[in-house]
Write a protein that binds this DNA or RNA. Structure first.
Lengths: 402, 402
DNA sequence: GATACAAGGCAAGAGGGTTGACTAGTATTG
DNA sequence: CAATACTAGTCAACCCTCTTGCCTTGTATC
């Protein structure tokens, strides 16, 4: 170790971080533009770009300025090097697995969907996950390969066959870069799964008597060399809510029951990651008896036969009395949320929750501490995937800056 | 504005912060010791001390080294300047008001206690708060004045009469320093009150049908020029728990009901500061009906007549059936805590809670997601005051470093 | 071709930090 | 009692990063 001058290192690191962030925002900038944008001098900007280029994080795009900018010398555009790699954003539901590759700009550069047959999914999910990732890998490699070297297409097509695509060329850290066609490594994966997730292991867990949709799965082991972050889909959906408050709860009422807790601006997961697993909260059941939330649906005969899931379709066809009973039960859960989380608002999502917001609101209005309710934002596309994407982008960017 | 060199300013600020923190830890250090402690060079330490002395944050204590340290030149001890001031740590309960002055080292330099008559407290609390603060101010001023100049004692004794002591000499920012006896300003106050506290206003609020012990009070207005932080006493008591987990809940079961939520290592207060107000959580009441937690005590006839408080003394004399009913009701509340907070453990405190931990534990053990219970640490002295002190110390230190 | 103008590089200098030598001052030791 | 050992603090020289001002380079316009 050389004597290390911590303070000076810190200053330099800060400058480099500013440059990287500016390039993430604007995609490409000349050194002069960087200086103006960040508020540093031109020589400093130039030095930082030189350092970052040496580290492989930044590259000259080859593009030159003169885009009708009038007279003056042409400038060189720099951008984040494509070789820094991508992140995977993955959602796992009973219906299938969706995998997307996103780059540092948040663009989706590849997408793969694997449907799973509902009746046999417990076995197929792991295979679907592997295949979906491999497929997205190939697509992303092709994408970058066609830019650098069209011939690489043949090479990566062979990787379709199996999981070899993952352990081989495209895994993070393996920036061998021997040939002309340098692959983009996968730096990390963020996964949203439609079941409770254990915080420490990242495994899907089956809570007693609670709906269990995807089944036993260990995504961390399946994607082994890659850094993997797994969490409940409801948490990710909450992350995607627009204009979200610093303190709110996202109550998901669908085939499964879930709740995301956002407190002081961040998702709170609890000790083992199971904060928001509402199945066993005591609430008012039919007849005014105190029962766990999930049992309300059993007692009303609304659980899917042979499964732990709630039958949302049949639930929506129940008579007013049952709907009122459900509204009352949900309002009991909301009372507990109000007591322990004190949210500014409660967002109601899921397949059947928004349809019952009238009944829920009426019951909540009668409680001693009413709270504003809101239906989850529809948005475009899958809100879970949107949240997973946002997290993947954040972490991908952070991994470059660190 | 001069051109400002942001990066270098940052480095200097960091060095000064390190020096201040080292002095807070060790109370007094020579410049050579500072350099060794922080890992900076001697000239840098000397420069930082010079800057901080100029800003009035650090002062030469007059003490010299040679405490049997063997041969060598004597060094000058520096310390945080006494004139930087103190913070107030205050607890407000139905029994009275306790005010302590603490310095940057966490030492209590003055203490004042004002008892309040239980039967007439609603009016007297505000007066008691004012008097208690004034008394502590005088004591603290005497303390510092005797060090600097004994004659100042007469001067501050006159301040006992009323709130003038606060608006006058001892208020933060007024570092007039005209005479030789420079007072220590009060930089801030942290208050623990035995009732729900509104997060935005700092006022004590009365939730419908919940126990209300202290009564309407606006501590922020009462201590006006000083920065004031007010929070529920249960939250502060949780802060004082030794070896606390990153995720736990502190359930307070006494005359009032309360719960502190610690998630990801910090106390979570919710949108309006009412997170943990458990009175209206639905739980299992006598006979298995779903009732709000607080109503369990009404139905069992355990609320104090003419008041909203729970009668802890009578509660402890109930028969086994009632105790079991209470244990069951508490376990329902704990089930909700487990669902929304997912704590590593639940700490039971308050006047009667620990006595019923057997019954509570038994009922909790039967739930689908049992959680370890623990009786709140006894500790020495008032746990609430300990937590308030800790927060006051933190904020006092932060106010110097910023 | 002369001119205007922007990108980028070079040289000088500011300001924080570090090193190493030096001074000052106190104990121990012969 | 003088020599010695040892420590606190300072000084001078230097490193590193950033900034400013000037210069060069190269393109577009007049």
């Amino acid at each position: 170790m050389e004597p290390t001058r911590p303070s000076q290192d810190l200053v330099r690191a800060l400058t480099d971080e500013h440059v990287l962030r500016a390039l993430m925002r604007h995609r490409r900038l000349t050194r002069a533009e960087l200086a103006a944008e960040i508020g540093i001098s031109k020589p400093t900007a130039g030095e930082s770009v030189r350092r970052l280029t040496e580290r492989g994080l930044v590259a000259d795009t080859g593009e030159r300025t003169q885009g009708g900018r009038g007279r003056g010398r042409v400038g060189s555009y720099y951008a984040i090097a494509p070789t820094v790699g991508v992140a995977l954003a993955i959602t796992i539901t009973p219906a299938g697995v969706v995998t997307e590759c996103i780059d540092v700009y948040g663009d989706t550069v590849a997408r793969a969907v694997r449907q799973v047959d509902r009746t046999t999914w417990p076995r197929q999910v792991a295979a679907a996950l592997r295949e979906s990732v491999a497929e997205a890998c190939v697509a992303a490699d092709l994408d970058s390969a066609t830019v650098v070297n069209g011939a690489a297409a043949v090479n990566s097509a062979t990787a379709v066959g199996g999981a070899a695509a993952m352990g081989g060329a495209a895994v993070a850290g393996g920036a061998e870069g021997g040939g002309a066609a340098q692959r983009r490594p996968i730096r990390l994966a963020v996964i949203g799964a439609a079941d409770p997730v254990d915080r420490s292991s990242g495994r899907l867990v089956h809570l007693p008597d609670a709906p269990f949709l995807v089944g036993e799965l260990d995504p961390v082991a399946l994607l082994d060399p890659i850094e993997v972050v797994v969490d409940n889909d409801v948490n990710w959906a909450a992350l995607a809510e627009p204009d979200r408050a610093r303190d709110f709860a996202y109550l998901f009422l669908g085939d499964g029951l879930g709740c995301a807790i956002v407190s002081d601006g961040a998702i709170r997961r609890g000790h083992s990651g199971l904060a928001g697993e509402v199945a066993h909260v005591l609430t008012t059941g039919p007849g005014g008896r105190s029962v766990p939330f999930i049992d309300v649906f059993r007692e009303l005969g609304l659980r899917r036969p042979g499964s732990t899931a709630i039958d949302g379709d049949r639930l929506l066809k129940t008579d007013p009395a049952d709907r009122e009973a459900i509204g009352s039960a949900v309002s009991g859960v909301i009372a507990a949320i109000v007591a322990f989380v004190d949210p500014r608002e409660v967002v109601i999502g899921g397949t059947w929750g928004p349809a019952l917001i009238e009944e829920i609101g009426e019951a909540t209005g009668r409680s001693p501490r009413p709270v504003p309710l809101r239906v989850a934002a529809a948005g475009i596309g899958d809100p879970v995937l949107a949240g997973v994407r946002a997290e993947a982008l954040d972490r991908l960017r952070a991994s470059l800056i660190a």
